[in-house]
Simulated scan of single mutants.
Amino acid sequence: MTILVTGATGTVGRSLVDQLLEAGHAVRALTRDPARADLPAAAEVVRGDLTDVTTLAGAFAGVEAAHLITFSGEFGDTLTNGPEIVDALVAAGVARVSVLGGWDTSTVEPALDAAGVAWALLSPTEFMANTLGDHAEAIRTTGEVRAFDRGRASPAVHEADIAAVALAVLTGAAPTGREYLLTGGETVSLEQKLAAVSDATGQPITLTRLSEAQARADLTAAGLETEMIEFTIALESDPPVVGSQPVGTVAEVTGRPPRTFAAWARENADAFRAVPG
């Protein structure tokens, strides 16, 4: 079975490529820059860009199932050309699709519905890998995390567990026609995340809690746009109910408990280790 993985160089995509190969499937990995992809040699790495449908016909040819993302890999913008992407995969005869969704519905999901494609939506509440982008540089360089933190705890999900659910959908082990809300098996606060990273690296990490005014100043100085600043403050001040508690989807689909944040921290410890001075 040949399966196309878009977003193949992302955290979920890389894990999905690995898991599909391990399960014995032929994998075609889509990336804008194959020379820099650094994917397993067993994967067929092809050049393509979801924002440019003219690059996709060859990528979909001969593919039986495809994993799609709903955002541009370069800037993270929500895709606006969903109907064109879906037309290309339908023309190629792709039979099953998993979709890694974002905060909002893109043009991809309704286009799949309109085309009658068998597909399922993967909806992670929070990625464990977000900790890399949010805090790794500060931990490496200063050993201190400055954050607007009111103790919010959330059940972040390991990217490999997201990939495992995608694999089940793509190979027919899990049904299409539904949304899979994905969480980890435990709620973890920022303080607990940093403790896990500290244990994994053997290095102390200080959490400095900022006032709302201090956080706004830090986020502004970091170059965040106003909309993202407001989102960050609101997420901590008034966290959404959906996704605030663990759900059993990963265990239901894979037959095993979700991976823990402590395990994720051990796997990614090198990304947080102090920079030699």
Score class of each variant (00 low, 15 high):
I205M: 09
L219P: 01
A23G: 08
A136V: 08
F231R: 12
T232A: 15
S211L: 02
A42C: 07
F127E: 04
A129H: 14
L194W: 11
G202E: 07
G48Y: 00
L121N: 13
A269P: 12
T187V: 15
L207T: 04
Q192C: 02
P175I: 04
R150Q: 12
S237K: 12
N81M: 07
G243W: 05
N268D: 02
A271Y: 11
T226W: 05
V17C: 10
S106W: 05
S123M: 14
G73Y: 00
D18W: 08
D134K: 14
V86E: 08
G116T: 10
N130M: 07
E137L: 11
G93A: 03
T131F: 12
H25F: 05
T206G: 04
A215W: 04
E144N: 03
A23I: 07
L79S: 07
T51P: 01
V108A: 06
E159Q: 13
R178W: 06
R96H: 06
G116Q: 08
E252N: 11
P40R: 03
T141V: 08
R47V: 00
A23R: 12
R273Q: 11
A251V: 09
T131K: 01
R209C: 03
V63R: 01
G133M: 10
E179G: 13
V94M: 05
H135P: 00
A41L: 11
T208L: 10
A95W: 03
L190G: 00
G202P: 09
R150V: 00
A168H: 04
D134M: 14
D134F: 14
A8W: 01
D149K: 00
R150Y: 00
F60N: 01
T125F: 15
A29C: 06
G76R: 06
P204Y: 03
V108S: 07
P124M: 03
V250M: 11
N130K: 02
G58Q: 01
T206M: 08
V17G: 09
E74F: 09
A35W: 06
W119P: 01
G82F: 06
M228Q: 13
L132Y: 11
V108R: 04
F231Y: 13
P246D: 05
G62Y: 02
D238W: 10
L194T: 06
R28W: 00
D52E: 14
E227S: 13
T70W: 04
A42I: 02
L132C: 07
A35G: 14
A262N: 10
E84D: 15
L112W: 12
I85S: 03
T11F: 12
T105Y: 09
A160C: 12
E267H: 03
Q214G: 13
A274S: 15
P110I: 06
V90P: 07
L39I: 05
E230S: 13
E22V: 12
V157Y: 07
E191I: 00
T31L: 00
V27G: 02
A156R: 13
P155D: 08
I162E: 13
A147Y: 09
V99G: 07
T206N: 08
T107W: 09
E230H: 12
R152N: 01
E159K: 02
E84Q: 15
G24S: 04
V197Y: 06
P110H: 10
P240F: 01
S72N: 14
S198N: 05
V45C: 00
L235S: 15
